[in-house]
Simulated assay, not measured.
Amino acid sequence: MRVFRYQESQKEEWNCFVKSSRNATFLFERDFMDYHKDRFIDCSLFVLSEKGKLLGLFPATIDTAKKHVVSHGGLTYGGLLLRHDVGTSQVMEMLAAIVSFYQEMKMSFLYIKPIPHIYHLCPAEEELYVLFRIGAQLSARGVSSTVDLGVPLTFSTLRKRKYKAAQSSDLKINIKGDILIFWELLTETLNKTHGVAPVHSYEEISRLAESFPEEIQCVTVTDFENKIVAGTLLFLTPRVAHAQYIAASGRGKELGALDFLFINLLSSFQYRYQHDLTPRYFDFGISTENQGHYLNEGLIFQKEGFGAHATLYDEYVVNLSSNESSFSRSPKAQ
């Protein structure tokens, strides 16, 4: 195996592979990955066979002070992006080459956040097996809540009761909601509830939405005065509609606006899925904090009320200084 560090001049080649990969999403296209390149040092890799065939990509960032490599430091998930025809033995060789490359850079730890299986166009969990083989340790586990749109939808009694009440409140859903107004609601809600700001600034998310108009969708709920009372920002991939952000005003909560929004959204996505027009899963996002050691039970209860069940977002750490992470072969890194 041969490994090369990504250069900006290779953007087109990188993006072309991402679009053909069996487990990548648009988050790995350079226009998305690089939106915060001022905050991260990119150290992504191309992985090729000895004959020069591109087998995979490894999106990654490095912290030179800590000597840490993270795949990926600015994204929800990372890990190897694979060709459709790459097998388990090849993935073992690929990860060996990647480990060797970062060891030569004198990095100490490699953190990998494998892409959850719901995003895969077809099974692509070879990396998980290899991580087990090289002694990688589970360092974080987030619990997300996912609805399978391929089976009948089920809603809890509470969610159905709030939805029924909301139906009499003259609420309307806007599938092309105003991101600026939603962002103001989101920012106010997060600050008031948790004392934090959204991960993305409005300038960042608006630029991303402009770059990915088919993949980033803002859906809002307005009341009879045409005022936004709730909404969500969706990241749409071939297999998953992911709720990246969710917010509701105080009035929106009183009206059951989120119940109105998500029951309608889930029903709409399921109808479209049945007609081959939509992703298979709807993912509400994680309800955990502190590397998974804290579970927000109230939040996950609400999500599970829409018929969602657990999908894990894991992170593994490889000690690059330990013999336990060594492979039986010595791959060539360049």
Rank of each mutant, 00 (worst) to 15 (best):
G256A: 09
L312T: 00
K106M: 12
A24C: 10
S139R: 15
E304A: 04
V317P: 08
S145W: 07
L233Y: 02
D34M: 05
S321W: 10
S44I: 07
H194T: 07
V229K: 00
K67C: 11
S44P: 15
Y202E: 02
I246K: 00
S49K: 14
V69S: 03
H200L: 01
L277K: 07
G150Y: 05
R251T: 09
S20I: 04
P238C: 15
F132T: 15
F32W: 09
T222P: 00
D63S: 06
G231Y: 11
S49Y: 09
E324H: 10
L131A: 08
H309F: 12
D148L: 07
R5S: 03
D38I: 06
V147W: 05
R272C: 09
C218G: 08
S44V: 07
F327M: 03
L138W: 05
Q244M: 06
G256S: 08
F101Y: 15
L312G: 00
S145H: 10
S44A: 04
H194I: 06
W183V: 04
F282L: 11
G256D: 14
Y281H: 05
T232G: 10
E203M: 07
M1G: 07
L236R: 07
L128F: 08
L180V: 11
H36Y: 05
P198S: 02
L80Q: 11
L185P: 03
K37T: 12
L180S: 11
S144Q: 02
T25E: 15
P279Y: 06
D276C: 09
G250Y: 03
P59L: 07
K19Y: 13
I216S: 06
R329A: 09
T237N: 09
S249G: 06
H293P: 03
F327L: 05
L320C: 08
A243Y: 10
K332I: 02
F282N: 05
S21G: 11
S44E: 14
K192V: 06
G305H: 03
R5E: 09
